[in-house]
């Protein structure tokens, strides 16, 4: 209650103070500020505002665009099918479109020890193993598949940091990435207080959904993967 009162009354008092100062000042400035000049200033101000609007409407190139509801719905259904494939150990959903990065490592012998480090928030992606006939022995191809991450109508997939993957002493290390901090300004020519109250009751789900990224390790068929932490799942 007190917080709300303070929030309402402090600006109110501030406005009143500004009003009183303006009225006191206006007595002295009336000689210069004739109605005609004031009208010119107001018209100029509105014109400037309109120009600023035109700039945003036609010349401002936003790197990010908000997806339309239909696009979001489509992505959501796609992601649901991914989940189904994954549960069936079917790797067909890991298409080239989703590959964000690949690493290639060479190792000696038939076994590859994999050490997964968990730091901070832990691992935010799944690790899958696939035996691939196209890969020669002693080689591992690691691909990072990033699926759409929808936050507030935006696809933030590009901003998700890559995991740290490296190989030393014939051992593959996988570490979660460092946190990527991103801030954006959003222009919403609407009333936040009204939208907020309406959204709560309307569509809570659409603002946030994603499907875990997948780190796929492709190795030749006879290679043995030493899963040190037991986090790797086999996939066909």
């Amino acid at each position: 209650m007190t917080a709300i009162t303070a929030l309402l009354f402090i600006p109110f008092i501030l406005i009143l103070v500004i009003f009183i100062i303006l009225r006191k000042l206006s007595k002295n400035t009336k000689k210069f500020w004739t109605p005609k000049r004031i009208i010119i200033v107001i018209a100029g101000y509105i014109t400037l505002g309109f120009l600023a609007f035109l700039y945003f409407a036609f010349f401002y190139e936003s790197k990010l665009t908000v997806l339309a509801n239909s696009e979001i719905k489509q992505l959501e259904s796609e992601l649901k099918s991914l989940q189904r494939y994954d549960q069936e150990y079917n790797s067909s959903y890991l298409t080239k479109d989703y590959i964000k990065n690949t690493w290639e490592f060479k190792f000696e012998g038939d076994s590859l020890p994999v050490s997964i480090q968990e730091r901070g928030n832990g691992l935010n992606f799944d690790i899958r193993l696939r035996y691939n006939d196209d890969i020669e022995k002693g080689k591992a191809v690691i691909s990072y598949y990033q699926f759409p991450v929808i936050i507030d109508g935006l696809n933030m997939a590009d901003q998700i940091p890559l995991p740290i993957v490296y190989m030393t002493q014939e051992q593959l290390f996988i570490e979660p990435p460092l946190e990527n901090k991103v801030s954006y300004n959003r222009i919403k020519a609407s009333l936040g207080i009204v939208d907020f109250n309406r959204e709560v009751d309307l569509e809570p789900s659409i603002s946030l959904f994603h499907y875990s990224s997948v780190l796929l390790i492709d190795v030749a068929r006879n290679t043995e993967l030493e899963d040190l932490q037991g986090r790797v799942t086999y996939i066909r």
């Binding site: 928030n121 933030m156 954006y184 919403k188 609407s190 207080i193 939208d195 946030l208």
Partner: peptide, 28 residues
Amino acid sequence: YGQQNLDLNFTIYSLDMHLFLSVFWAFI
């Protein structure tokens, strides 16, 4: 929002403050 090691922060510019001011202005 925090998702998949992404810390995302939105600053929203809407009309609330401007409307609030206009309303007080109109009253006074």
